[in-house]
Every structure is written in structure tokens, then in C-alpha cells.
Nucleic acid binder design. Structure first.
Lengths: 341, 341
DNA sequence: TGCTCCAAGCAATACGTATTAGCCACTCTA
DNA sequence: TAGAGTGGCTAATACGTATTGCTTGGAGCA
């Protein structure tokens, strides 16, 4: 057991100095109001402390506060396994950075069992409450879990925008995909593009839904969307060309790469014959043959602000619990004026 | 005083279930000997616990010397910051993997302050004891901290071999750099090489010292070593050639890359004119122009076994607390027979 | 003398949990 | 019917520290 047998306590110091434990505590914490300790007594206690090398047990101190300075990190997809590692990494960097600044430790909930390829918070023996609060990561978070968190009044912050759960707002720090996507459409339009297409699943997760929403707002409600119903990239390209679209906005980078290959094997050049815009950094590592035009997600900053927000919530200082950060446009080489006929 | 909103205690659970706090504790810990709780009472308590998501306060438990299923991870260099990120990543994967298998959560000690560019465990408010035990990562770990850990009888395991601290053995799971490096020398010798050189700092850290030791054992005590006293790669190359060495073993990949460039700009071809062997994966990300011959460190396995060992120690089952894993040789393209005169 | 006031220090308590020692109401034995 | 068990639960306590009041002895004042 970690407890060293001869571990010193304030009681030991008190005995050695011939005072009470209270006095030792008062001397140690040196509170300005409690200057009711005679200088010679104080000195005597301090001498014993110096001689023995006593140090207060941080656990016992923490017990009296109500917060444990532990922030949970719950990841719906496994973090370290390499498939999504590169994606989560920047978030974690931001989270670590802010946790370090606020003097908190991070608890990774590795004990949560994986069911159907996804972790679940609420299982037989969930340990969420070990932490003061929790940061939630994941493309899609089951709304059942979110609403339970909200109704249980557990302090948490999602990384990424989330829909209301049971009509109650979910705290989050997200990226403004609606605005970022609409901005890309507008840029393409400014170059002369008139018809647009969108490749992505749409409503499966908030992040995808927001991109589609931004696309519709800027490109028109009736603009073409191609989703999972058409898995083959060749078929997708066919449909896009048939609709007369000259600029394609693609949710996932992997889809953009596939589409690019399909276009090339059909003899089309990118961007001269077709512009391709990637809506954010890859969620899975992809060897992209091109430097895609689009935007980047402020992932590290999202992680940072998620911890900041959580900390504020824990101290009752948070007024607004939902934040959207702007995405930074990326020039790239896959957007050009539309071909002339 | 910050109050965690809705932090539940056993007293709350007891009130809700209409029993005493003692009963809740007994149900929770499910002790077979003291478990004289009626099945229906037990069920009632468990239901309340499930409904509320209650989890015991780890601090209070640790005050009573209990285990929390929390394993600490302490990294002497910052983990997430990108300089060393790629290096630590595989260790963390292994650690996470094994923690998941044993149902433990991981506590990253981000609260430890950075002083002089290195984290310190023992500071004003060290929270080590929140965790049941701890895995320590880092190229160099101050021996003062190690000996304090050992004398305080705190359960911990280092990733990477460590020298004794104050004459006491330090638990570790390391890689056998001595054998792996000697093996590389022997391979080169089998190809006809007779004189060898070593580039690396030597005794600054155990990992570097072990490589040098393996080199000396196989190449001879008087074989050339070039360290930090000769920082310029051109000077290093000069010295190596002057000594008549035809195969160079390099501790850090970045040094190998620099040496390669120096050799090329001198008109030397690698490996035809000079063989270069890299002693392990890069600690810092490097764009290597070549596929270096050498070995790889079983980093993920080291992380896994570190957690395994720690778990055994916590359960009093560990007999041997020091393990060395073998490194896997890598073929590469930088080793060839020595040039003929 | 009788009173207040103050400095200096201490006893008691709280934090949340685990454990020990019992209490109470039964049932079984003789 | 007394005595001994026993099952089912709880009160009390301990862990190490911070904080809240309380107790002293003595000085100051009328």
C-alpha cells in the first residue's frame, strides 16, 4: 500500500513542537487573519517542519474543497487507435494545454466498455462522477446519453455543436460549419460557378448536418446532394455532372479523394474541369494527392475552450454555455473558375 | 468555496434508499464476508445507484488506502505538444490498451507544473496518490524523484530501463538496447566491416548509455565515439573517416540524417561508401531521406507491459519488477559491405 | 473589586468513505 | 423459558487537514 509506514502528519508535528494540530495548520497556511500565533511559537513549529521535511497530504486538503481538480475526457471513438488518432490529437492538445493552465488533471475514461464499436458512458458501473466534470469527444454522440447527462445535471461540455437533448440545450464548443461551408459556396460563386453539388451523409451527425445546411443556404434548397445512397464514386461523379454542377463541396476528405480519382480516370482535370472543395480536415488519415481548397477546423482551440467553459461552469461563472468558433479558409489548388463552353 | 453541482455522496444514496450510509458502502464494496445484506435491500440500493449514476469519491477512498481503478500517467516531457508527440504516441496506445483490458481509467497528471522545461512530480500540491499507482514516461527522469518514489513505497513503473535509485531497484519495462545495438555491430561485421564508430551522447540517459554500452561490447572498448563535443556533422564525418570506420551507429535519427547529408555533399554514397545504422525509432519527427537499417523499439508493447506490471504490483503478485523487451531488427537500405580498396 | 477586552491557543467538527463493534428481533436448542 | 445463535442492519470511528468557535490567562479601565 502506498502509505509509507512512518508518514508524518500534522499531529506528529504538533506533538514534537508541543502545540495542537490546529496550530500547526494555522502556521502552515499562514493566514493573514489568523495571525494569532506568537512569533516564537510559529518559529518553533516551522523549525520542526523543516527538520522533519513534513509535507501536507494533498488528498486530505482536497477533501475539504468540493472539487477534485479532475476533469474527465470521454471519447466516443477510441482515441489512441490510429484510425481516428490524427483527428483527435489536436483536440487533446488543446484540452491538455488548458487543463495544465487551470491546474487540473485529466481522467481518460478508458474503462468504459466498447459496445457496437462505440463507447458508452452509461453502463453498469459508470465512473463519470469520479471527475468534477467531463469533456465529450466524438462525431456522433447518442442523444440518449446527452439527455441523461443534462437531466442529471452533470457538468459537461461537448467538443462540436450538438442539438438540444429533450429540448434542453447541450453545452458545447463547436465549429461554425454552417458559415464556413456557405462561405466556400460564395467564394466559388464569385469565381463564376453557378451550379453546386454536395457530397456527404447529411443528418447522421450534427457536424455533417451543419455542412449540408450551410451548403443549402448558399447554394439553394434544391441544389444536388449526394449521400450514402450512392456509394460508388463513379456513380456520384455521373450524377454531379448530369446535374451540371461545376463545383463540388465534399464533407469527408476520403470522399473527395475518391471523387478526384474517378474524375481523373474519366479524363477530367481538377480544378480546370471541376472544382472540388473539402469541408474540413480529414477525420481519417488519407494520402491526399492534392492540396484541397476548403477550410480547417480550429481543433486545438476547440479543446482549449471546452476546458475553459467546463471550468467556468464548475465555478458557476458560465453564462453562455454554447460557443461556435470560426473555421479558417484554406487556399488550396482545387478551386478555379468554371470551364467555358 | 466551489461546490460541484449535484455531487452525490453515500449519504444521499442512503437517504434515497432508506438505509444507512454503512449499508450503501457494504453493498458497493460487496464484501463476501461482511455481506449480510438482504437481497431486496441490496437491490434497492443498487437501483438508486444506477439511477443516480453515483460513483465513490476517489479522494476519500484513497484516504483510507483503497484502490480506485485509476492508474496515473506521468510524462516528464509534455506529451501532446508535437515535438515529442510521435514518440510518445505508441507508448500511450499500449498503456491505453492494457488499461482498458484491466478496467482501469487513466489519470494524466497535467497539473504537475513545468519547471526548467521538465515536469516535476513532487511539488507543493502533488496529487500522485489520487491514482493507485503510476506509469512514468520520459527519456531522463531525475534520480531524486525516483528515489523518493521508491522510499515512499509508492507503486510505479517506468517505461524504459532505469538505474538503481539510492541502491534500490527501480521497477521498469525497458527495451534491450545493449543487445539490439551489439546485434547491429555483429551484422555489420558479418558483412565484412572491421572498424566502427558511434554517434550519440552516451551517459545522459539510460537509453543512450545502453546503446553505447552495446556498441562497446561488440565493437571493442576503444572504438570511436562521437558525442556532443563535436556538434557539427561535417566535423563528425571527418573524425569518423579519419578513424577508418566503415560503419557508423547513430543514437538519434536526426543525427543520422545530418550525417547522411554531410556525407553526400562530400560525394560519398550511402551505403556503398559508408554504412549508417540508426539505433531505434526517431524521438523527434524527422523527414528521413532514406530507409535506415537498424531496429525498432517495441513501444506499444512496452506501454502494455508497463501497465500489466503495475497492475500485478498493486495486487502483490509481481515477483520480478524489471523487464527488458527485445527490439526488432529493421532491414533498411543503409547497410552494405564495406568498400574495397 | 468587578468588568470588559484581547491575545494565544485549543477542542470540536467537517469533508466522504470503509470498517468495527454492536444492537435488535427472531429462531433454535435444552 | 432461559440461553445461545443468527440474520440484518446501524452507530461510531478513523483517515489527515482546515475552519469555527470556545477557553484561558492576563491587561486595561472605572
Amino acid at each position: 500500500m502506498p502509505q509509507a509506514p512512518g508518514r508524518l502528519t500534522q499531529r506528529d508535528i504538533a506533538r514534537l513542537a508541543g502545540v495542537s494540530q490546529t496550530t500547526v495548520s494555522l502556521v502552515l497556511n499562514n493566514r493573514p487573519d489568523a495571525a494569532r500565533i506568537a512569533p516564537e511559537t510559529r518559529e518553533r513549529v516551522l523549525r520542526v517542519i523543516r527538520e522533519t521535511g513534513y509535507a501536507a497530504d494533498p488528498l486530505a486538503r482536497r477533501m475539504l474543497q468540493q472539487l477534485n481538480q479532475i476533469l474527465g475526457v470521454f471519447t466516443y471513438e477510441p482515441v489512441f487507435p490510429s484510425t481516428s488518432a490524427d483527428f483527435y490529437y489536436p483536440f487533446l492538445r488543446g484540452i491538455e494545454e488548458s487543463a495544465e493552465l487551470s491546474g487540473c488533471d485529466l481522467l481518460l475514461f478508458t474503462s468504459a466498455p466498447v459496445q457496437d464499436g462505440i463507447r458508452r458512458i452509461f453502463h453498469e458501473n459508470n465512473r463519470l462522477r469520479v471527475a468534477d466534470g467531463c469533456v465529450l469527444l466524438g462525431r456522433a454522440i447518442p442523444s440518449a446519453e446527452l439527455s441523461r447527462l443534462v437531466t442529471e445535471d452533470y457538468p459537461f461540455v461537448c467538443v462540436g455543436r450538438r442539438d438540444d437533448a429533450d429540448g434542453l440545450p447541450v453545452p458545447y464548443v463547436g465549429a461554425d460549419y454552417v458559415a464556413a461551408t456557405a462561405e466556400q459556396v460564395d467564394r466559388a460563386r464569385a469565381l463564376g460557378h453557378e451550379r453546386f453539388a454536395f457530397v456527404g451523409p447529411g443528418a447522421v451527425a450534427e457536424s455533417s448536418a451543419d455542412r449540408l445546411e450551410g451548403f443549402r443556404r448558399a447554394a439553394g434548397e434544391d441544389a444536388l446532394q449526394v449521400g450514402v445512397e450512392l456509394p460508388d464514386p463513379v456513380d456520384r461523379l455521373e450524377r454531379i455532372l448530369a446535374a451540371g454542377a461545376t463545383a463540388v463541396l465534399v464533407d469527408f476528405l476520403s470522399d473527395a479523394v475518391e471523387l478526384t480519382e474517378a474524375a481523373r480516370s474519366r479524363g477530367l482535370r481538377i480544378p480546370d474541369d471541376l472544382s472540388v472543395i473539402a469541408l474540413g480536415d480529414p477525420t481519417t488519415p488519407v494520402d491526399a494527392p492534392l492540396d484541397y481548397t476548403g477550410f480547417t477546423i480550429p481543433r486545438q482551440e476547440m479543446g482549449r475552450q471546452a476546458v475553459d467553459l467546463l471550468t467556468e461552469m464548475l465555478h458557476g461563472q458560465a453564462t453562455v454555455t454554447q460557443r461556435l468558433l470560426a473555421c479558417r479558409p484554406v487556399e488550396g489548388e482545387t478551386l478555379a473558375p468554371p470551364p467555358r463552353h
